[in-house]
Amino acid sequence: MAATISYDDVQVGTELPAQSFPVTRATLVRYAGASGDFNPIHWNEKFAKEVGLPDVIAHGMFTMAEAIRVVTDWAGDPAAVVDYGVRFTKPVVVPNDDKGALIEVGAAVAAKDDEARTVRVDLVARCDGQKVLGMARAVVKLA
């Protein structure tokens, strides 16, 4: 583990650089293949609407994977993340057009643990102005 951010340089309230992640239907097909999650709600509009969804939605785990990039890019070593959890509160709806959807992720240090030299980072992920993840938290071991 080799985080490049020093524990002592981080305060409660320190903001991590925010990032935005575009997601199109092609992204979802690719993620389905890579993850092995072929649930048709993530690629078949007809099926998604039949089960009551407004349209095809992104895999919750895709959103979870994107959100943590804000932390791993900041920490320097992805292995600095020792705990990561989210609640899937709202689906990311992905229309069948050139634009798709945009997942916007911000994060800030919410707590410090002097003994473990870890920080708790609280993440906020939004799509179309609505929160798509709840209780999104990562514990990060810093240098």
Binding site: G60, M61, M64, P78, A79, V81, V82, D83, Y84, G85, V86, R87, F88, M135
Partner: peptide, 11 residues
């Protein structure tokens, strides 16, 4: 899928 959490010992 309601919630997901991982506790890592190592990557």
């Amino acid at each position: 899928h309601g919630d997901q959490r991982f506790e890592y010992v190592r990557p």
